[in-house]
Simulated scan of single mutants.
Amino acid sequence: MTKHEFEVAMTCEGCSGAVTRVLNKIGEVNFEIDLPKKLVWIESDKDVEVLMETLKKCGKEVKYNGTK
């Protein structure tokens, strides 16, 4: 599985909770959230576009930083 890094405009625990909820819905992903750095690492075989669109559902600005 590939590990992708995304920058998500999270400011609080509520924001990271929203990210957790949308990612849990797509299944077959492992993820880590670093709230202070506003980073989300997602390990998945899904297409980057799918992951990006899923993250955008939490209502925050999302930027793809590449694979790690």
Rank of each mutant, 00 (worst) to 15 (best):
M1N: 10
M1A: 14
T2Y: 09
T2R: 15
K3S: 15
H4L: 10
H4W: 03
E5P: 01
E5L: 04
E5S: 04
F6Q: 03
F6S: 05
F6H: 06
A9G: 11
A9H: 08
M10G: 04
T11I: 14
C12I: 13
E13W: 05
G14W: 10
S16R: 02
G17D: 02
G17E: 02
G17P: 02
A18D: 08
T20A: 03
T20D: 03
R21S: 08
V22Q: 01
L23R: 00
L23I: 11
K25W: 00
K25I: 06
G27N: 10
G27K: 08
G27F: 00
G27L: 02
E28C: 06
E28G: 12
V29M: 03
V29W: 05
N30M: 11
E32N: 12
E32L: 12
I33N: 02
I33L: 10
L35G: 07
L35V: 11
L35C: 09
L35E: 05
K37N: 13
K37S: 12
K38D: 05
L39H: 05
V40G: 00
V40C: 02
V40Y: 00
W41K: 09
I42Q: 02
E43Q: 15
E43N: 11
E43M: 11
S44F: 07
D45H: 06
K46F: 07
D47K: 15
D47T: 14
V48M: 06
V48G: 01
E49I: 10
E49W: 01
V50F: 13
V50H: 13
L51P: 00
L51H: 01
M52K: 13
E53V: 14
E53N: 15
T54K: 09
L55T: 11
L55I: 13
K57G: 07
C58P: 00
G59F: 10
K60P: 03
E61L: 13
V62Y: 11
V62C: 13
K63E: 14
Y64D: 09
Y64V: 06
N65E: 10
N65L: 15
N65W: 08
N65C: 10
G66D: 04
G66H: 01
T67G: 03
T67V: 14
T67W: 00
K68P: 04
K68Q: 08
